[in-house]
Write a protein that binds this DNA or RNA. Structure first.
Lengths: 172, 172
DNA sequence: CACAATTGAGTTGTGCGCAATTGAATGGTG
DNA sequence: CACCATTCAATTGCGCACAACTCAATTGTG
């Protein structure tokens, strides 16, 4: 009961799957980069890159957070966050200091300037939303769809490459 | 007029927009990376990265193409493509030679090995599709949605930063 | 035909994303 | 208490994305 409906009839040939794959993966890739580009233009005024903006969004919600938690919110590891946070610190938006409780942990906290930046950022979402031409409801629907996708993909990736998996496979 | 209590339900306050923005932009970002991660796992067998796979998809359709055309298909510029193509050439999948017609242009052509790789790649889309858990119809719908988004975003970006624009603004 | 403007690849520099590794701090176990 | 595994941040290395620039080839115009 594969696709069919193709000129030839029968089940969808691999060739067509390859073409469809070209479509879907390219579409997602392109959409992501287009989004990035629009954010780039708008965030230039704030002196932020798109990933830096994501970090600031989380910090505006939480104000103080260890790097680990930040990474969980954003699904990013220290390899990405460490240099990014250094740049935010150099820009005077955050301060990093090792936790007294746990010397391994580093607490990230907004500076006055970082808190103040939020005011200027308030207009960003509207400008983004208007760039998409989508209404709040459409955005919400698309978001839900993308989250479904991410959940499914993460689950599949976990199956293929069991790393943070619950079942601890024995190491020979 | 500070925040006010939004439970009341007037027009959406900026604070909520900021939260919504966190949601949608993060969702897209996360979905893109999750997709990338799944492709990474699957393409490892072929010795390709995800962007390299995109290039190969185009070449499997066209067989021979100048770098410029390749860039138009993928919306990538030479800054990205040049080193990528060098790596594909080093891997023995493509050959690059300057065009005799136009010495500026570089023709990219599949090698025997590059053509042969297509056979092994035929299974990739199925594996990706099954990872998403989406059917062909859902994939097609999502793709259409993302393409709408990309078109809108590109148009908005072009307005904000008129570069390849149709209207040739005079240069003083 | 000569000369300026444009085009096409390539290079450089910056930043992100991720795998793999390092090193210090912590926690659990005998 | 000593030892070992785990945890957390940082670093290294590689590849992609994009802006800005260089340089040669080509095209257009006078």
């Amino acid at each position: 009961m594969v696709g069919s409906g193709y000129p030839g009839g029968m089940n969808t040939p691999d060739d067509d799957w390859l073409r469809l794959d070209q479509q879907i993966c390219f579409s997602l890739h392109a959409a992501s980069r287009a989004f990035n580009g629009v954010y780039r233009g708008i965030l230039k005024d704030l002196g932020l890159t798109y990933p830096q903006y994501l970090v600031m969004l989380v910090l505006w919600e939480h104000d103080e957070l260890p790097v680990k938690k930040l990474g969980e919110h954003l699904r990013l590891d220290s390899g990405t966050l460490s240099p990014l946070l250094k740049r935010l610190e150099a820009a005077g938006l955050v301060r990093r200091e090792r936790s007294a409780r746990d010397e391994r942990s580093v607490e990230v906290r907004l500076t006055e300037e970082g808190v103040a930046l939020r005011g200027r950022a308030l207009q960003v979402p509207r400008r983004i939303a208007s760039s998409t031409g989508f209404g709040p409801e459409e955005i919400r629907a698309l978001r839900a769809r993308l989250d479904d996708l991410t959940t499914a993909l993460d689950a599949a990736a976990a199956l293929a490459d069991p790393r943070g998996d619950s079942s601890a496979a024995e190491r020979p």
